[in-house]
């Protein structure tokens, strides 16, 4: 039974993106990604106002023994970041799809969404990788 939420879309590099309905999209990493990384000790977030290209490295999640780039699944401008992560990076470990969101973005081109996977597609990807 999959726990992958169906209300959002996914990148192959394990980021999720959720339409908030007000023109903004929230971005985070998947539960699978946080499990691979282990206990996170630091999250480096982009600054509000930064313009991000699709596929650009926009954030870093750090565990004790690894550091991983987070790639922006779409093109747009950062409009908010999750400041909770600054003091409590473990929030991503605890709730990657909820309280552990990373930043919000204003999309430049909605058609980019079509390149992303839905929950079933992402589950299939995970099955393939396993």
């Amino acid at each position: 039974m999959s726990n992958t939420p169906t209300d959002r879309r996914y990148a192959k590099s394990h980021e999720w993106l959720k339409d908030e309905g007000d023109g903004s999209f929230t971005i985070g990493i998947t539960d699978h990604a946080q499990a691979l990384l282990g206990d996170l000790v630091f999250v480096d977030l982009p600054e509000v106002g930064t313009a991000l290209e699709v596929g650009s490295d926009c954030a870093v999640v750090e565990s004790v023994k690894a550091a991983s780039d987070v790639y922006c699944p779409v093109t747009g401008e950062v409009i908010a970041v999750n400041e909770v992560l600054d003091g409590a990076p473990e929030t991503i470990n605890e709730d990657a799809f909820g309280a552990g969101w990373m930043f919000k973005i204003k999309l430049t081109d909605n058609s980019e969404l079509e390149n992303l996977l839905d929950a079933a597609g992402y589950d299939a990807l995970l099955a393939e990788e396993a």
Partner: peptide, 9 residues
């Protein structure tokens, strides 16, 4: 064994 996570957080 040491708590590496605490050392970094």
């Amino acid at each position: 064994r040491l708590d590496d996570v605490r050392a970094a957080r």
